[in-house]
């Protein structure tokens, strides 16, 4: 076991660790982090730099007042907000709290850190779901084309190529117009417009395997087609597919960001890293932290998946 592990290149090990951290963040983070969509005080939605502190007074009527500074006075709390000093009487105030925004806030006063933590879950879930869908679709098409051969093969593969020729974002745009946008629909749309690579890979695998002795032997002894396909061809074709999947996960996460850039990403108020980056670029001049943090997380994750995929490839090569 140890010997096998040692064959992982260092980069891939680090990448795997990073991905594990990201996955951990996506799973555990939202449990400990406050909800990301809260706009505590809609009348004070300033863009705050990382590290800024804000005070909040929880009022009796259930609303919250944000303040830049806060000090207790005889009758209640003296607060300063947007340059004005006012006193909120003790009878109105149910409680006070202070909060530091370690990574700043966005244009609506929402905590960037909280949105990044919750966004990890959305980005990863969306990417994984799209990955599953595209892999399933691509595997089906690839298996059918590779196994059947002939006219079906030609048509299926040409179809896959031709779908590639239609600009994918245009396709997705029309699909989101047709279906009402939600996270699920988005995953389906992204997944169902990126199966072509898998199909091609799968077909190549099946074609090679079809000619291998063990498959020919199985056919000779009269094993059923489905059995050969499912029990023997598919598992053998899985390895390169797994490596490809690791690479594609990154791509799929990026596609969501591109869609957000064109306005067709995850519907608000849900945050994903991609949509945060796309929104942030529009306001780059006013807050660097809106671009830098989601950008780094996004790039880091995609980079890690690519490195992991490469590590996988290298490991497989040594294995052979």
């Amino acid at each position: 076991m140890k010997r096998v592990c040692a064959r992982w290149p260092a980069l891939a090990r680090h990448a795997g660790l990073a991905l594990g951290l990201v996955a951990g963040l996506a799973i555990v983070g939202p449990l400990v982090c406050p909800a990301p969509d809260t706009i505590r005080d809609p009348s004070s939605t300033a863009l705050l730099a990382p590290g800024s502190q804000r005070f909040f007074l929880l009022l009796a009527d259930g609303s919250t007042v944000a303040a830049e500074t806060m000090a207790p006075v005889a009758t209640g709390w003296e607060i300063r907000r947007q340059g004005e000093v006012q006193v909120v009487s003790d009878t109105d105030v149910q409680g006070v709290e202070s909060r530091r925004f370690w990574l700043g806030t966005d244009a609506l006063g929402r905590d960037v850190l909280a949105r990044l933590v919750w966004g990890a879950r959305v980005s990863l879930a969306l990417g994984l779901l799209a990955l599953v869908i595209s892999t399933l679709l691509g595997t089906l098409v690839g298996l059918a084309a590779g196994w059947a051969g002939g006219a079906l093969d030609t048509i299926l593969m040409r179809l896959a190529d031709a779908v590639l020729a239609v600009p994918m974002l245009v396709l997705v745009l029309l699909l989101t117009a047709l279906l009402r946008p939600s996270l699920g629909v988005l995953a389906v749309v992204i997944g169902s417009s990126s199966w072509m690579g898998v199909a091609r890979l799968m077909r190549a695998q099946v074609q090679t395997l079809k000619q291998r002795d063990f498959v020919l032997g199985l056919r000779a002894i009269g094993a059923s087609r489905t059995r050969i396909l499912l029990r023997h061809v598919l598992p053998n074709a899985m390895t390169p597919l797994g490596q490809d999947a690791a690479l594609r996960l990154g791509d799929l996460i990026l596609i969501e960001s591109s869609l957000s850039f064109l306005g067709f990403g995850v519907p608000p108020p849900t945050a994903s890293w991609g949509s945060m980056l796309a929104d942030g670029q529009a306001t780059l001049g006013s807050g660097w932290w809106l671009v830098v943090f989601p950008g780094c997380l996004l790039a880091g994750t995609v980079l890690a998946t690519a490195l992991l995929a490469e590590g996988l490839q290298e490991k497989l090569r040594h294995f052979r």
Partner: peptide
């Protein structure tokens, strides 16, 4: 290793972000 990471950096960003960064 250094080349692996640097060559993948741009790959790991959406192309609009890379383009805008270059323009910037």
């Amino acid at each position: 290793r250094a080349l692996t990471i640097t060559s993948l950096l741009a790959y790991a960003m959406p192309s609009f972000a890379v383009g805008m960064g270059l323009v910037w």
